[in-house]
């Protein structure tokens, strides 16, 4: 399993979204992206869903981050 960390903090929209979407192509089943964000990327979710990915957003002590992985095939 590979974990790809993308630091999107301090970037202006739509750069964070573009960087995440670009990284999706390299993601295989079992891999995940962890993107460090300045805020929740609500507008990203529609694209993730359309492209067959799942996500989990958290906003803990270490700041907002979204974890993304490929939807498991049934």
């Amino acid at each position: 399993m590979m974990q790809l960390i993308i630091d999107n903090r301090g970037l202006e929209p739509p750069q964070p979204m573009v960087r995440i979407l670009e990284a999706l192509a390299a993601l295989r089943e079992g891999d995940e992206i962890v993107a460090l964000m300045d805020r929740e990327p609500r507008l990203l979710y529609r694209e993730l869903e359309r492209r067959g990915f799942q996500w989990e957003f958290s906003d803990g002590d270490d700041g907002p981050r979204v974890r993304i992985w490929r939807e498991a095939h049934p």
């Binding site: 202006e12 929209p13 739509p14 750069q15 979204m17 573009v18 995440i20 979407l21 670009e22 990284a23 999706l24 192509a25 507008l43 529609r46 694209e47 359309r50």
Partner: peptide, 21 residues
């Protein structure tokens, strides 16, 4: 510009070159 970008380019972002806002 962000709304325009989102509606015009988010669907292809990551698969080909897209402009910035």
């Amino acid at each position: 510009p962000f709304i325009a970008w989102y509606h015009r380019y988010s669907g292809v972002a990551g698969t080909r070159w897209t402009p910035g806002t």
